[in-house]
Amino acid sequence: MAALDLLGRRWTLRILWELSQAPAGFRDLQRRCERMSSSVLSTRLAELSGARLLTLHEDAYRLTPLGAELVDALGPLTAWSHRWAEDLER
């Protein structure tokens, strides 16, 4: 249940998605997440770091192997969401 609590928090999945595309520094990640407030971003980064899903290395946040595995596990959800969006457009 703790994993669902963490993943259900606002911006958490977006942060994971952005970091799956490329590592990012704080400001770049904030920009990529539509200018999320710095306090929310700081909180989410601390939570995700504490859960060992990401790490800070050379001023850039990166997914850990565990974080990358989580993003891969979300692949079926991403595929479903694309099918759902296409269905809504019809």
Rank of each mutant, 00 (worst) to 15 (best):
R83I: 06
V71Y: 00
L7N: 08
A2Q: 12
M36L: 14
E86Y: 05
A60T: 14
A51G: 02
D59A: 13
L77A: 12
Q21H: 12
A3T: 13
R9V: 06
R32W: 10
R9C: 06
H82S: 12
S20D: 10
L88G: 14
G8N: 06
G25Q: 08
M36S: 08
D87V: 07
L66Q: 10
W11R: 15
T55I: 05
L70Y: 02
A51P: 03
L13R: 14
M1P: 12
D87G: 10
W11N: 13
G67M: 01
D59I: 03
S37G: 15
D87P: 00
E18A: 14
A51E: 01
V71S: 01
G67T: 00
W17E: 13
R62C: 05
P23E: 14
S42G: 13
A24V: 01
M36G: 03
E47G: 06
L19R: 08
L41S: 05
R9F: 00
H82I: 11
E69N: 04
E18I: 07
R52M: 00
S38K: 14
D5C: 00
S81W: 11
L66D: 06
S37K: 13
T12R: 07
G67S: 05
G25C: 08
P65Y: 01
G25E: 09
Q30N: 06
R10M: 11
D28T: 07
D5K: 13
R44A: 03
P65G: 02
S49A: 15
L29P: 05
L19N: 03
V71C: 03
L41Y: 05
T64W: 02
Y61A: 02
R62E: 05
L16M: 05
A68T: 03
D28G: 13
L77E: 04
S49W: 05
R83V: 07
L4S: 13
L19S: 03
D5V: 10
R27T: 11
V71I: 03
T43D: 14
T64Y: 00
S42H: 09
S37E: 12
C33K: 07
M1H: 13
V71D: 00
L19P: 04
R90G: 11
S20L: 00
W17R: 10
D5Y: 09
A68K: 07
R9Q: 15
R35F: 10
W11H: 15
G75R: 15
S39H: 09
A46T: 04
E69K: 03
S49I: 01
R27V: 13
T78Q: 10
P23A: 12
M1I: 09
A60V: 14
R9G: 06
L74T: 04
G25L: 07
E89Q: 14
W80C: 07
I15M: 05
R52P: 02
R90C: 06
R10W: 08
L54P: 06
R83D: 15
R44D: 03
G8R: 10
T12M: 05
A85L: 14
R83N: 11
S42R: 15
S37Q: 10
A73S: 15
R44T: 06
R52W: 01
A46D: 09
R90H: 11
W11A: 10
A22H: 12
V71R: 01
S20R: 11
L70V: 01
L70G: 02
A85T: 13
L53Q: 02
L70N: 03
